[in-house]
């Protein structure tokens, strides 16, 4: 079978503070035999989805990325939760809102108009829906046996559920299935889809600390020894705003470890 190639949108944070999320994701993709080809000309997605319907400029970078993937006839893969949230929802706007669709096309003056044709996949969806967790499991050479890991979903991958279509927003299983596939034991805890405090940490640390402490207390009480996330801002809040927190890792780091390729990182 031909090797699957995806267009890849890393986003700003994965080029800087979130490098590990990207680095291990790429290594693991090689080991799993799919290709992430970084888009040549991507620009920052803006990090927050513009909910106001009259905002066009803030939607353009997403549409540019989506249109480039379409030009290559590829699905577009994201890894950062925030980029995924923004690009996926802007794509739906272009599909469903005529006014937004017309305006972005008028601004971008693309060779062929873009109408939302590109399919957007988060890396975890590639693992579940393209690679398959059973195939992933078969490729694991260093299973993380005995580790009790809590999935931290946060908000952006799951909600709004009918737009993100990622998993059941109230009772997700994708990261738990991932944890099982790499040989560890998932720990379910109620606050795994509660907000970490997001950008409000900037103005109001105490507020983010309260959010994170409740998440950590809950995960610890259920027996988790570590949390995994796909979001650099969740990572920051979980690591820096917890009074007595668990270790937190990007899911791609554990994936690369289980596939035996982690040491290949320079």
């Amino acid at each position: 079978m031909a090797k699957l190639t995806y267009s890849y949108f890393p986003g700003c944070t994965l080029k800087t503070k979130g490098k590990d999320l990207d680095k291990y994701g790429r290594l693991a993709a090689q080991a799993l035999d799919f290709e992430l080809e970084e888009l040549a000309d991507w620009q920052c997605c803006g990090a927050v989805y513009p909910m106001a319907k009259d905002e066009i400029a803030t939607r353009l970078s997403s549409v540019r990325a989506l249109a480039s993937a379409k030009a290559q006839s590829r699905e577009l893969v994201t890894l950062c939760s925030a980029c995924h949230h923004v690009i996926k929802r802007v794509n739906l706007d272009v599909q469903n809102d005529d006014e937004i669709c017309q305006k972005v096309n008028r601004y971008l003056k693309l060779d062929t108009p873009y109408a939302g044709e590109t399919n957007v996949l988060h890396y975890l969806e590639v693992l579940r829906d393209r690679v398959g967790f059973d195939n992933l499991k078969a490729k694991v050479v260093r299973p993380l046996t005995g580790m009790k890991i809590g999935a931290y979903y946060g908000c952006l991958l799951l909600r709004p559920g009918k737009e993100m279509g990622f998993d059941n927003p109230e009772n997700p299983t994708i990261i738990e299935d991932f944890i099982r596939a790499i040989g560890a034991e998932p720990v379910i805890y109620a606050r795994r889809n509660e907000c970490c405090g997001g950008y409000c940490t900037l103005e109001n640390k105490a507020y983010a600390q309260k959010q994170v402490d409740a998440i950590m207390d809950n995960a610890k009480a259920q027996g988790a020894e570590m949390l995994v996330t796909a979001c650099p801002l969740c990572m920051y809040n979980l690591k820096n705003n917890a009074a007595d927190g668990l270790e937190v890792k990007y899911f791609t780091e554990l994936l690369a470890e289980a596939l035996g390729v982690k040491e290949n990182a320079e």
Binding site: T13, T201, L202, L233
Partner: peptide, 26 residues
Amino acid sequence: HLKPDAIPALLDEELPQQAITSAFRK
């Protein structure tokens, strides 16, 4: 709500771009 000259004081070593960009947009 957030003036540019107020921002440096809010930053720390590990804060991801995502947080700063989000705050700017919000």
